[in-house]
Nucleic acid binder design. Sequence first.
DNA 1: ACATTAAGTGATT
DNA 2: AATCACTTAATGT
Length: 220
Amino acid sequence: MISDSALTKLPEGFYDLFEPELIQELESLFPAKKFPQGEVLMEPGSRIRFVPLILEGSVKVTRTEADGKEILLYFVGPNSSCAMTFTCCMEDRISEIKAVVEEDILLLQVPFGRMDAWMQQYPSWKGFVMKTIRERFDELLRTIDQIAFHKLDERLLKYLQDHIQNNGSSLINLSHQQMADDLATSRVVISRLLKKLEQDGKVLLFRNQVKVLNEGKKDK
DNA sequence: ACATTAAGTGATT
DNA sequence: AATCACTTAATGT
């Protein structure tokens, strides 16, 4: 859910991320905008006119194939932005991806006009942009590795872990079919992989729910 | 009680 | 790993 204070103030996390001057600039962009779950923020072909800075909630970023199939690229969580947007806006290019609100979000819209100036003026902003792009790039590389070596089981594990990070709970409320859609595979495959994970004691299965077990605090 | 939907399984490609 | 065909279990009406 979205707290009222977040509508007018920058969340804690940003204060040690940026220098005071930049914080002030950011706060002049308030009030932040709310978007409800399910809202489509971006579609392939659309032009982006601002850089989203997410304060709360998360956004699901997918790539759409010609035949309408979608594959999940990544989630964008709080205190971060979308790497694709940075690269797109620099050259005023159109979007290659689709972005849908996963959990109600609160975001600041940073106008493109400020990007150039900020990059030069604030080392922390430049660092933030570079870090965002590098992290995403590394992750995409890893994903390509996994696809190339047919390691769908690893992808599934990472997918589950991502979900835990995003909603803070090890209870994942998704059907096997939904997971299959996100990973661009069939339900049967997900069922089999999850079954294996359950036999390995890594997970508990219920209808429309998966509970991921924490091996950290278990007996040995 | 019946229909619908989610999940489990063996066989085949 | 994907698809098919089929079973079983859970849920909805």
